[in-house]
Amino acid sequence: MKTLIDQLGQYAEYHRDRRNIATHFVGIPLIVVAVAVLLSRPGTEAFGLWLSPAALVSLVSALYYFRLDLRYGLVMAVLLAVSLWIGAAFAAQGTAAWLGAGLGLFVVGWIIQFVGHYYEGRKPAFVDDLTGLIIGPLFVVAELGFLLGLRKEVEHAVEERAGPTCIREKKAAA
């Protein structure tokens, strides 16, 4: 299994433009919540919890994040729990509200992602490696931590592999 640095470094290679990273701060949370909403049906309430395919996907994802890093795993588990709560709230609504919210968030999230990759001038990481789909949310959490001055050792290791973030200027067509 790849290490935390391997995963974040590989993902970061596709995300060095600050504008692309900024779009990921919006797009990825929208997509995560959308998936939680869409996978919250079918479901059933047991022990005060809404058990659904979303809960299973979140549990497996959280276990993967914990295996990569305990601190990031804890943050991701909390964020996944919040997404499950939102998903369960929409699953309790009528089909139109549930499906409209889930699909709407999903489509808007991906549009924002592709705008970011336009700035990056590079395709999304998951095109070359599907693990990019599970690393994306972790990357956003890690980048937020870096902005707050946390986990400097991880930030330096990721930048050693991927290079520093920058803003790429589009070359004017001659």
Rank of each mutant, 00 (worst) to 15 (best):
L49S: 06
I31W: 01
G163L: 10
S58Y: 00
G136K: 01
V141D: 13
I135R: 00
F114C: 10
T44C: 01
G149V: 13
G163W: 12
I21Q: 05
Y11C: 07
V60F: 13
E160W: 02
S83H: 04
E120K: 11
L133K: 11
I28D: 07
G132A: 08
E160Q: 14
G27M: 14
Q7V: 04
R71G: 12
M1D: 09
R16H: 04
K2Y: 03
V108I: 15
F139W: 13
L4D: 02
N20L: 04
A91P: 01
H117Q: 11
V82H: 03
L49H: 12
L49E: 10
T3V: 03
A172E: 14
R161C: 02
D128T: 06
P53N: 03
P124V: 06
R122S: 05
F66Q: 07
V141H: 14
L99D: 02
V78K: 12
I111P: 07
F106R: 07
A89D: 08
G94E: 11
G73N: 08
L80F: 15
V26H: 05
I31A: 02
F106I: 06
E153N: 13
E159N: 09
L150S: 10
F90D: 01
H117T: 12
M76W: 05
A92E: 10
G102W: 02
F106D: 10
A92V: 05
E159Y: 06
R151D: 13
T95A: 12
G132K: 08
V33I: 15
F66L: 15
L51I: 14
V57R: 00
G48H: 05
G102D: 02
T95C: 02
M1I: 01
V127L: 13
P137K: 08
L138S: 03
V115L: 14
F25E: 12
A101N: 03
T44S: 15
G104M: 12
L105R: 03
P164Q: 09
I111Y: 10
A62T: 15
V78L: 14
F139R: 00
A142P: 14
L80E: 01
G48P: 07
V108A: 15
E120R: 08
A157C: 05
R16W: 02
V82E: 06
L68Y: 01
Q93P: 04
Y64N: 08
A91T: 03
V57L: 10
V107I: 13
D129P: 05
A92D: 07
L59A: 15
G104Q: 09
F66M: 15
L80H: 09
G132I: 04
W98S: 02
F106M: 09
L4K: 06
Y65H: 03
W50L: 02
E45H: 09
W50Q: 05
Y11N: 04
V141L: 15
A157V: 07
Q113Y: 14
F106Q: 11
Y64V: 12
A36L: 04
V26D: 09
A162Y: 06
T165Y: 08
E45V: 10
G136R: 01
F66I: 11
T44W: 09
L130A: 12
